[in-house]
């Protein structure tokens, strides 16, 4: 690589996932961009909260051979509790681990490299009507980096969708949004106090941005990460549906049932203290919610 011109690694990338069929139409490549202004208690992807490199340790695969400790430039034992405060996420231990029990999450990347990587999947978009979906974290958290990606891929005619929590300064991304052919938009809880409690931020900006995006006439799918007793309540659903009926009448709605499959990652990242477990919704509860949604004339969809 030394003779290649230096790439500007000015963004952080969690991963690129090819052949995704649940994040929009057709066969899609999902670009996971870390960094998020929210701290939702139900989050299944805690590795995406910040953009910095972080080490994940999967205890189940570890044979305690000690290789990682012996190679660590910081002199720490990555498998030990509380060791992460000194860890810089250099990944030396992960490369050395014979069991693949360690890995580094979030890496500095250049937009140019990501675009090149996406181009390899382009043939699969053609027949499927697919493209790229930006996911996170919150993709707008790295607005500059996102802009670079969007500009590059737009110039190649690649279809782009966005998954967002809606918490961003609209003017900072107002040039990016119109380039999206569809936006997945979360309305997590309508009650402002609850929203603050469970996500760490007020939902005022989110509700305002939803209206502004809708005015841009970009097709929208509203998503609710559905948790019984929290937001899968009649009260919250009615508030959401009323908001949609009033401000986003043509938007569709998707319920994303809460799951606790993210647990493992909290342990791997030694973030157990941030882990909250909620109740998983039952088929009946979801069906009941679906009936309510239909009664409002809102189109209920599923991208699964």
């Amino acid at each position: 690589m030394s003779e290649n011109k230096e790439r500007i690694e000015n963004g952080s990338l969690l991963q690129i996932q090819s052949f995704s069929t649940h994040d929009g139409d057709g066969i899609r490549t999902v670009i996971f961009l870390p960094g998020c202004p929210l701290r939702c208690q139900w989050c299944a992807n805690p590795e995406t909260w910040t953009t910095n490199r972080k080490l994940a340790y999967y205890q189940g695969k570890c044979t305690h051979c000690g290789t990682c400790k012996s190679v660590c430039p910081q002199g720490i034992d990555p498998t030990a509790k509380g060791s992460r405060t000194l860890c810089v996420g250099c990944g030396v231990c992960a490369s050395a681990c014979p069991q693949e029990a360690l890995s580094v999450m979030c890496k500095a990347s250049s937009a140019e490299d990501i675009i090149k990587r996406v181009q390899r999947d382009e043939i699969f978009y053609r027949y499927s009507g697919g493209g790229v979906t930006y996911s996170g974290g919150e993709p707008t958290f790295q607005a500059e980096f996102l802009r670079e990606l969007v500009t590059g891929l737009s110039s190649q005619g690649i279809d782009q969708w966005l998954e967002t929590c809606g918490y961003f300064a609209f003017d900072k991304v107002s040039d990016i949004l119109p380039k999206m052919s569809h936006i997945f938009y979360d309305l997590k809880v309508m009650d402002e106090e609850k929203h603050k409690h469970y996500t760490g931020v007020s939902n005022q900006i989110i509700l305002d941005n939803a209206k502004r995006i809708y005015e841009l006439k970009i097709p929208m799918t509203i998503r609710i990460p559905s948790i019984p007793g929290l937001n899968l309540t009649r009260e919250n659903l009615e508030q959401t549906l009323e908001f949609m009926s009033r401000y986003l009448p043509d938007a569709e709605l998707e319920l994303l049932p809460y799951h606790d499959l993210g647990r493992e990652k909290y342990h791997a990242l030694q973030m157990e203290e941030a882990l909250h477990i909620f109740e998983v919704p039952s088929e009946e509860e979801l069906e009941e919610a679906a009936d309510l949604i239909r009664s409002y004339g809102i189109r209920l969809v599923s991208y699964t």
Binding site: F19, T21, D25, G26, I27, I123, F124, R126, Y127, S128, G129, G130, Y303, T304
Partner: peptide, 17 residues
């Protein structure tokens, strides 16, 4: 799902192209 079957069809066409 139907979406899934369409995507599989597209996958086949892409590979053959």
């Amino acid at each position: 799902t139907d979406r899934g079957l369409n995507n599989l069809g597209a996958l086949i066409r892409s590979y053959f192209s």
